[in-house]
Computed example of a mutant assay.
Amino acid sequence: MAHLRKLLPPIASGSLFGMGLTVSGMTDPQRVRGFLDMFGDWDPTLAFVMGGAVLVMAVAWRIQARMTKPVFGEKFALPDRTDLDPRLIAGAALFGIGWGIAGLCPGPAVASLVLSPVHAIPFVAAMLAGMLLQKITMERKVAS
């Protein structure tokens, strides 16, 4: 029962996130591609979604600064500037290229598994294969 209690917050927040992506239309690859098509038939929807996310995070950062520990955890795991390294930058560039080509990123892809699995399964399969490849590569690097 305690294990289920630990899983409830991430399941609830992930479900809320997926619903938000669906309601905002961000599970539609055409909408994302439309946002990236700045010189064609540009769709500003994603800019509004990002703007809303920035506002929510601005409030969240203010609240977090006053907290001694997270509500559902032992300590905060916040990024810092030392996290920037060539692997992170290369990964971010690869992510951006894939996002532009597919019109999906991990969150919307997982949410799309419910709505249009035929279109999402190849992306999610490729994403999982990439994650496995990264894990194998890092394990080999640590072992050597």
Score class of each variant (00 low, 15 high):
residue 68 T to C: 03
residue 44 P to T: 11
residue 28 D to M: 08
residue 133 L to D: 14
residue 89 I to T: 00
residue 40 G to R: 00
residue 101 I to Y: 07
residue 46 L to P: 04
residue 33 R to W: 07
residue 57 M to T: 12
residue 63 I to N: 03
residue 110 V to G: 01
residue 63 I to T: 02
residue 35 F to P: 08
residue 126 A to F: 05
residue 25 G to N: 09
residue 127 M to G: 05
residue 97 I to H: 00
residue 66 R to P: 03
residue 96 G to D: 03
residue 64 Q to G: 04
residue 54 V to Q: 00
residue 88 L to W: 04
residue 39 F to C: 06
residue 4 L to W: 15
residue 47 A to I: 00
residue 134 Q to F: 15
residue 97 I to A: 02
residue 5 R to H: 15
residue 25 G to T: 10
residue 113 L to G: 05
residue 98 G to I: 03
residue 118 V to L: 11
residue 51 G to M: 05
residue 96 G to N: 01
residue 62 R to F: 08
residue 14 G to I: 12
residue 81 R to V: 13
residue 137 T to E: 14
residue 62 R to A: 13
residue 108 P to Q: 06
residue 139 E to H: 14
residue 6 K to R: 10
residue 125 A to Q: 12
residue 94 L to W: 06
residue 86 P to Y: 12
residue 94 L to R: 08
residue 103 G to A: 04
residue 44 P to N: 08
residue 87 R to V: 01
residue 137 T to R: 12
residue 10 P to W: 11
residue 37 D to H: 11
residue 32 V to G: 07
residue 144 S to Q: 15
residue 136 I to Y: 14
residue 96 G to C: 02
residue 122 P to A: 06
residue 117 P to I: 09
residue 44 P to F: 05
residue 54 V to R: 00
residue 144 S to W: 15
residue 140 R to M: 14
residue 74 E to I: 05
residue 114 V to M: 14
residue 53 A to G: 12
residue 123 F to Q: 04
residue 65 A to T: 02
residue 111 A to Q: 04
residue 139 E to Y: 14
residue 98 G to Y: 01
residue 103 G to S: 01
residue 101 I to T: 05
residue 46 L to A: 15
residue 70 P to C: 01
